[in-house]
Computed example of a mutant assay.
Amino acid sequence: MAKMVETAFRTQRAFLITAAKSTKPTEDQLPKVLEATGKQIQAVIGFRESHRTSPQVNHLSAMSESISGLSWVAVVPTPSQYCREMMNASVFYTNRVLKEFREKDKTHVEWVSAWTGVFSELSDYIKQYHTTGVTWNPRGGDPMDNLRDAPPTGGAPPPPPGGIPPPPPMVKLTPKSIEADPTSQLFSDLNKGLDITSKLKKVPDEQKTHKNPSLREGPKPIVKNGTPQAKGPSAPVPKAPRIQLEGKKWFVEYQKDNNNIVVSPTSMEHSVYIYKCENSVIQVKNKINSIILDSCKKTAVVFDSLVSALEIVNCQSCKAQVLNTVPTIAIEKTDGCMVYLSPNSLAVEIVSAKSTEMNILLPTESGEFTEQAVPEQFKTLIVDGRLVTTCTEKAGN
């Protein structure tokens, strides 16, 4: 996927070089001029579709959803805004990456920041140099002729304007570098097949554990000042609560017994990540992109509108209320959840998995709410060789 994305950006770079040398194409020429970029975008999307079982499916989906931002070249009069909207379309998946790796591997967190940064900077570039659409050269040549003379997309790009140097060339492997690489030596040994055992040393009898029971004993415990007393598991060190905006993401973490949390100022590009809060209430102002409620207990979130989705994951006895609109609500690995909908949000799509005690509260004309339980138990039958699953009556369906 990385190679395909790189090719897509190189293709767009070649297109922009062509645009700088060409007059604006006619309506008949424009599809041909944009054809190469369209093919690379479709290739990235197709790769994700054919690798949905990949362990990195959220990474692939994030790239697939936002790569359409390269189609800004065909958008008028607000291409910069279109590019940012495509970047926002990937937030649902980048949030999943953050949720999975935030406490495990910071590399993935840095990747999310870098990937969103690419489209953020691309949007700024478009806003500055192609404000209402691609800028063509009124004194340039024929776009079709210049397109044929454009630099190849697979090679190194030409130096950009302003004298900014291109990235350093890739290092070529030489016999010495291969010999010095322990990984290549490992594969070289593996390729020997059964001959690899020729380098193994014979173990003498005095070092064999099956002939010397004393070797099978583990290390002796260290005794200091008498017999040590057994210690229980150490209590986790409490972390300091914080409410902080990092880039386009608000972090609300480790809040406890705080009912006056207000996330503001916000914009449609912002998302909110609420992590390990307990017995707290968070109010999110204005319309934003998405909200994730992760590993919280007895915590409530109230928000106006979302562009993408509300996710409730690994929570216990939590509440959420939408005042205006939300397109999707995802509930996963949660025990006890109440979601209050508004009259404008009744078209919402609710996806749940591995959760219990989920209740959706629907508004009535009197201003009160009626409570509806989300089914937790299902029945599956085999019909004509296929599985047919329905909610059971016990689940409240």
Score class of each variant (00 low, 15 high):
18 T>F: 04
150 A>R: 15
251 F>C: 01
281 V>N: 07
328 T>C: 04
103 E>T: 12
277 C>E: 03
218 G>F: 13
90 S>H: 00
227 T>A: 05
79 P>M: 05
151 P>H: 12
203 V>T: 15
126 I>K: 06
93 Y>G: 01
286 N>M: 01
203 V>I: 15
157 P>T: 09
51 H>G: 00
116 T>F: 09
46 G>P: 04
195 D>I: 08
94 T>E: 04
276 K>R: 14
383 V>K: 13
188 S>L: 04
59 H>I: 13
288 I>T: 08
262 V>H: 07
163 G>Y: 05
195 D>A: 15
183 T>R: 08
304 D>R: 09
84 R>K: 13
4 M>H: 06
171 V>D: 07
324 N>C: 02
76 V>A: 04
216 R>A: 13
237 V>Q: 05
100 E>A: 05
290 S>P: 03
125 Y>W: 08
380 T>E: 08
98 L>K: 09
145 D>A: 15
76 V>R: 09
335 D>G: 05
48 R>W: 05
213 P>E: 12
71 S>K: 07
85 E>W: 03
80 S>G: 09
143 P>K: 02
268 M>A: 10
266 T>L: 00
38 G>M: 00
228 P>R: 03
156 A>W: 06
219 P>H: 02
51 H>F: 01
104 K>T: 08
371 E>G: 10
335 D>R: 06
111 W>Y: 10
174 T>G: 10
18 T>Q: 02
132 T>E: 08
327 P>I: 13
365 E>S: 04
